[in-house]
Computed example of a mutant assay.
Amino acid sequence: MNSPASSALDQLLAKVSQLVDRIESVLPQPLSAPDWAQAIAWRYRKRSSGHGVLEPVRHVAAMSLDDLKEIEPQKEKLQRNTEQFVHGRPANNVLLTGARGTGKSSLIKACLNSYASQGLRLIEVDKADLTDLPDIIEVVASRPEKFMVYCDDLSFEDGEPGYKALKSILDGTVAASTPNVLICATSNRRHLLPEYMSENLTYKHTEDGEVHPGEGVEEKISLSERFGLWISFYPFSQDEYLTIAGQWLSSLGASPAQIEAARPDALLWALERGSRSGRVAYQFARDFMGRQAAA
């Protein structure tokens, strides 16, 4: 039989073990690799405990490059860079900037679907979690797949920590870049940071007429310059908008006659929304076909 002293010691050790388990559960844990066979796209998320985890995206948007109209130059640039990347040739980190709803995010999704069979994978990271980029890259560095680390609608306010982290990862540390990781971001801001009228006063004028930006402006430009490939998107004309609306209507099963008949409604829809973007065209197509199905 156990003595009372031995029994008390066992109880104490059990309580200590429970306490240690609780402490370990709230301490930062290294990011663990998921089962990469589960998906072609992943989201990096922070748990309430502060632990990071890569969650599989079960249903990736069924977007193809042929679905995207009126952005042929942009498609060609991203396709060329992506092909270089998946085939192990030198490729650049990519910054897609421009007007809202013009296909920046859709082009990324379409590229993923097009090149997934060749080993392309995507990891979506929120701006708030960019400080964890080194941990994510360490997990995937030894994998045979090619990973596009994607941050959507990226922009920073002054002093945000993710700004410095991303800047270092792109081109600012002593470590060599990882050949199977490509950083890709979309933004409505070319320089990713707010720009103020007062910054114009920091420009210096030399005697021979040259203009030199101040240090604050240089700092803002320095991040976007670390993306080797800039792809710019522009607002669509009326004809381009109608072409895009027709493409989405066709993909949803509309006949040529229905597409032609929908043109006035498509223009009215854009007028009410105050935009002729590709996103507005897609939303119109879904609304129009939904009403047609109910009729």
Rank of each mutant, 00 (worst) to 15 (best):
39 A>M: 03
101 G>K: 08
79 Q>L: 14
34 P>V: 11
41 A>D: 05
110 A>M: 13
55 E>M: 10
22 R>H: 14
25 S>H: 10
118 Q>D: 11
74 Q>M: 12
125 V>K: 12
28 P>M: 11
105 S>Q: 06
130 L>P: 07
46 K>T: 15
29 Q>S: 15
82 T>W: 12
107 L>M: 13
62 A>K: 08
134 P>R: 07
79 Q>D: 08
83 E>D: 14
50 G>W: 05
123 I>E: 02
129 D>M: 00
105 S>F: 07
27 L>T: 10
85 F>I: 14
37 A>N: 10
114 S>P: 00
33 A>T: 05
94 V>T: 15
101 G>F: 11
82 T>R: 14
78 L>T: 09
79 Q>A: 11
116 A>W: 03
100 R>D: 04
34 P>G: 09
77 K>V: 08
71 I>K: 07
54 L>K: 10
55 E>R: 13
73 P>M: 04
48 S>E: 09
68 L>F: 01
123 I>Y: 09
48 S>T: 06
41 A>Y: 02
139 V>T: 01
90 P>N: 02
46 K>A: 15
134 P>L: 06
142 S>G: 13
33 A>C: 03
121 R>D: 04
104 K>C: 01
87 H>K: 14
140 V>W: 02
125 V>A: 09
19 L>S: 12
23 I>Q: 08
103 G>Y: 04
109 K>T: 13
46 K>Q: 15
38 Q>F: 06
28 P>R: 12
93 N>D: 13
22 R>E: 15
80 R>N: 13
142 S>A: 11
132 D>K: 04
23 I>L: 11
135 D>T: 10
76 E>P: 07
44 Y>P: 00
